[in-house]
Structures are given as structure tokens and as C-alpha cells.
Design a protein around this nucleic acid. Sequence first.
DNA 1: GTGTAGTTTGAATCCTACG
DNA 2: GCGTAGGATTCAAACTACA
Lengths: 286, 286
Amino acid sequence: MELKVVKEEEFSGNEYFNVLVQGDCLEVMDKLPSEAYDMVFIDPPYFLQLPKGRKLKRWEVKTDVNGVEEEWDQFESFEDYDRFVQEVLKRIRRLMKETATLWVIGTYHNIHRWGKLLQDMGFWILNDVIWVKTNPMPNWLGVRFTNATETLIWAVKDKGVKKYTFNKEYAKKFGIGKVYENVWLLPICTGKERLKDEKGDKVHPTQKPVELLKRVILTSTKEGDLILDPMAGVGTTGFVANILGRNFTMIEKEEKYVEWTKVRFSKYNNLELFNGIGKDANLPKS
Amino acid sequence: MELKVVKEEEFSGNEYFNVLVQGDCLEVMDKLPSEAYDMVFIDPPYFLQLPKGRKLKRWEVKTDVNGVEEEWDQFESFEDYDRFVQEVLKRIRRLMKETATLWVIGTYHNIHRWGKLLQDMGFWILNDVIWVKTNPMPNWLGVRFTNATETLIWAVKDKGVKKYTFNKEYAKKFGIGKVYENVWLLPICTGKERLKDEKGDKVHPTQKPVELLKRVILTSTKEGDLILDPMAGVGTTGFVANILGRNFTMIEKEEKYVEWTKVRFSKYNNLELFNGIGKDANLPKS
DNA sequence: GTGTAGTTTGAATCCTACG
DNA sequence: GCGTAGGATTCAAACTACA
């Protein structure tokens, strides 16, 4: 597929199928039509609140390693972050079809803020889904538990919504146990799938695994559905949606990520990077 | 051990070691001394938002700002619940030693409210710990994921706190993997351990497993430490603390639960119900 | 090509010394 | 006191080098 890329200024809001809009997510969402989307996936900045100016250096100092301290994760305070969350959710409410569902992924640093605020706005949580990482970064100094999980919140717009899509046959396949439990066991994004620039540095600090989006999309959408990702990063959501026969709108501010998303859609062989649809490649043994 | 039980009206606040106070948790906490506790465990009402009315809810806080009939019950209920959370946390802040830690357990229905509000009040989250239930209640209708997890938030009073207790040797033993991951795999409370009344009905709807409290206490306290449980239910926290050589203060409003806690401390053989300290009895195979 | 040993690295509210 | 820079510790999985 040829990925259409449009800059915010040139985006009318009319041609929103399988497009990546480069621009501010709030501004772009304001151009999109009401109740158009079947599913929304949000992978927001995690608001890690690391010490200012501190690079997340791996030891054996590499030359200016850029860590997680990216510009897009700079919020002054909880209030700033919360305001951003509310502005995003307000717009997403309008864009969701009546039966659409919303996913938000985060860690303990930020997920409770999204969870409470979306409840406050009337969204109705269906589940949380726990992503258990099979290869987490250990807590070096042994002062806390090793943080091996991320939390996904899955919600509908309102308490009364019943007709949303849930494909339990896929949920059964992905979850541990036999009754589609809300626990997914899979590794973080590494290897060939992980985008690296010419210097060999990772392109995006938090590229989500293809397998994760595959599970999200297959359990909560139908073929032909339209998916919104307002903070697309290097475009994993659209990349997987495309392969699975879903449509998408992606929004991303950073030009660098937009460029790499283009590369991903054109240069690379989709199926190669997908690690095998239908198979469980790139999953932990057994 | 003989469990001391005191009614709120007769509780001076002086003799708070290894006592169960029957009364309102806010009122009782106001009588306790500042910075006395090494660890606090909260297992709050989960705010399932079932059809309302009928019984007086345990989390409702008396307020003189009544009189305004809110059109949106749900929002009004969240406000009530949040006010309760804040009142609890305010008191717990005062009761915690500088180096103390706080645990809160909940599901997606309520945990995000506790998480955001405690962050707002300056508590600093160290981890979330995911309890994965090996025997969850399946979602029979197949309309969502089977909810097989509960989330525990583990926090200190302030960002700067460093000297809290974390026994990584125990954490390593309890967590999956080898680097004390934040994932605990254990069954819900059933069998001999589960308290049943003369009619065979369960005494408490959400009795916590002894094994869960064992893990909480062994990873985050030292022998001789003082633990507070302001919503004690049938007293699992004090029961386990006692066996493990920790001291406790428990608070519980419901007379029925207080009576059963007494039974638990006297009639039953503690060690029998404990399922073997140091061993991993009642755990899933391998 | 294949098997094996050694190397690299991952969204982290990590510690301590010093000016 | 605070801000900043230099420092040490792990496991799983993927990658690299080489026989």
C-alpha cells in the first residue's frame, strides 16, 4: 500500500482513510468528522518525570545517546498533563462511533491519570489488559520490583454501550488460560522489527511491538473498520491495521517519525516485519 | 495470640498495638498517633457501580453540601467516592512514618481513582504489582476479557523517600522470573481458608488470600514493624502480620466482620489456615 | 549452511558524591 | 538545601563472530 502523508495545513479533513497527518493531534482531530471511527488507540507520552537534563545513558557511554527524554514527553506538571489528557479525550469522544471502543496504553506513571479522567468524562471501562513483558529491563539496584508490565485500558463511550466488537476467539488465542483472560505475555519490540537509523540508534524510544497491535486490532475490530491513532509515533497501528484489512487515520507531530513511517510502509516488506500473521512468531517459547 | 477488640467510642488511641477497633475508619484514624506506622495496607470498597439505592454505602462521606439533586448519578457517585479516598489518604499521610510504604489494592473500577488522587497528594508510586488470579471467574457471556487481575499500587509518602523497606530476596521468590518482577501468580481465596457462615455462605465477598498478604508483608516490612489496615474486613492483614512477627492496628466498621476476625484469631489454628509459611502451599504447580 | 559462545540492550519515577 | 554528573547491576532475547 502507498501511504498517504499530508501536512496539517493541507489537510481538509475530508480524505481521512489510510492517511497519516503530520501535525498537532488536537488541531487535526478538530478537522475530522464526528462518529467516524470504530476504534481508537492511544499510546500517549508516559510522563516519566525523570530528572531534567538527564539522559538515560546506558553504561559504557555512547556518544550522545538520546533516551526517553524526548521533547514530546515534556510536561511541567500533573496539571499540564491532565489538561492535555482531557483535551484529547474530549475530541476522541466526538470522533468515536456510538459502538466504538478506545484503548489507552501506559504504565503506573500515567495510566491512573488517563483511567480516572476518562471515567470522569463518562467513558465506561470494559477491561484493563495487562501486557506482561517477557524480557523487561531489570531494576538494577534492587530497590523496587522490576517493572515488567504495561496496562491497557479498554473502554466504550458510555455505560450503556453494548454492541461494540469483541472477537472472543482471538481473545482466547492471545490471553493466558482458556477463558480469554486479560493478560498478554509478549516481548518488547526488538530485533529486525525495531527501527534503527543509519547510526544504528533506535528511531523511536518506545516503538510498540507489532504483535501487541495485532492483538488489539484483532480482538476489537472487524475487517474494513476505521481506526484512529492520534499519537502514531512510527506508525505501528496503521502498519498492522493495513495488513489486517482495517483502515486507519494516523496523526503524528514529529517529522522524523513521519518519515520513518513512510519508510516502513514502502521499503520494508510488511509481512516480513509482521512476524507472521496467524502464527505466533516472536512470542516466548511455550 | 489474643486479639484485642475495642469499640470506637472506647478507643483512646493510646493502645494501638495489635488491636482491632470497631468503628468508622476516618474517626478512628483521627485518634491514632502521627508517624507511627511502617506500612499501610488498604483494601477499599471497589465501587463496582452496581444499581444504587438500598443500603448505606460504606464509602459515603457525610457532607453538608447536599441538597443539589444531581442529574447524573454516576458522576455524583464518583465525587462521593473520591472525597472518601482523599479523606482516607490525608489521614494515612499523617500516620505513616517518613520511610513507610502504602499499598492499595483494587480493580479497574476503582484503582485509577486511588492512583491519580494519591499522586495528586504527593505520594510517590514505587510500583504497581499485578496479581494474576490462577482461577478467575470466567466472563461467561464472552463480551469482554475475563478479568483475571487485580492491581496493587505500592507507594511512599514523598518523592524523596529512599530508606523504605524492600526485601528483594522475598520479592525474587514471589515474582515470576528472576528479577523480582511485579507480577504475582496466585489463586483467589477458596477452600478451608475461605470463611463460611453456618449456612455455608461466604462471610466476606472479597476475602483476600493469606498468601497475598504474606507477600505484601514479607517484601515491604521488617519483623517488629507496625502495620495499619483501616478497612480490615475479616482481618487477613492482622492475621498474617501476627504470624509473621509484625504488629498491627486494624479498623473495621461492620460488626459481622469484627466477630469473624475474632473467631479467626481464636478458634482456628493459625498455622493451618496459613498454608505453610516459607513454603509455597496453595500456589499453582510450578 | 549450522551450532555455540560472547556481546548488546531494553519507557526506569534506581544511588551517591560533590560544588 | 539543590542541581548535576559519574557511577554500579540484572535478566531475557536477539544479534554477531567464528569454528
